[in-house]
Amino acid sequence: MAPTRTVKNKHAAPKGTSTGGSKSSFSGGGISKSKGKAGSKSKAPATQVKGRPNLKGLDKKKKQKSYTEKELGIPELNMITPVGVTKPKGKKKGKVFVDDRESMTTILALVQAEKEGQIESKMMRARQMEEIREARRAEADKKEAERKARLEDTKESLRRKRKRTAGKSGGDRDDGEENVKAVALTGTKAAKAKKKRVSFAGAD
């Protein structure tokens, strides 16, 4: 059957050979225009370069040696991959909308619980601060009261002292009154100091 086969297209022949047809695979008769496996034994292969079969073998080898980068264990290049570039595989493209009631309720409950917690903690903190402030104020008040009491005490003691001294010098009261009168008359100005005199030894 092989002799009846003609190759109309020049370029088809080498392709057929390159894709690897064999005698056994060639079973169909008649003209074949196909570029596929069918074309194998034609004139073209005979005239072709001797190196063909070797190439075929190389192709096969190449196919076998397809490793991924991970399998090879090559250290990865130190480069930056922008966020937008890395897309997770198997994930749906675009936005995920929330429209069903269940998911909305879930988000709602989550948000509300979070907010409640925040407000509660805020309140607690405010209460604690208020307590501290109250305690400080109470302490300040107490100190103020103590200071006032001490002042009163000293005042009282001073008053008592004066009374006591007044009681002791009861006979001198008239003198005291006279003194007061004298002060009232002359005023409280300090008594004038005697005028300083200068005397010369020779003058006497």
Partner: peptide
């Protein structure tokens, strides 16, 4: 016009929960 995404919904509800 479109529904809100997960993140947007959370932001909106978070703000509403303040009041």
């Amino acid at each position: 016009m479109r529904p809100l995404t997960d993140e947007e919904m959370k932001t909106v509800l978070d703000k509403l929960a303040n009041y």
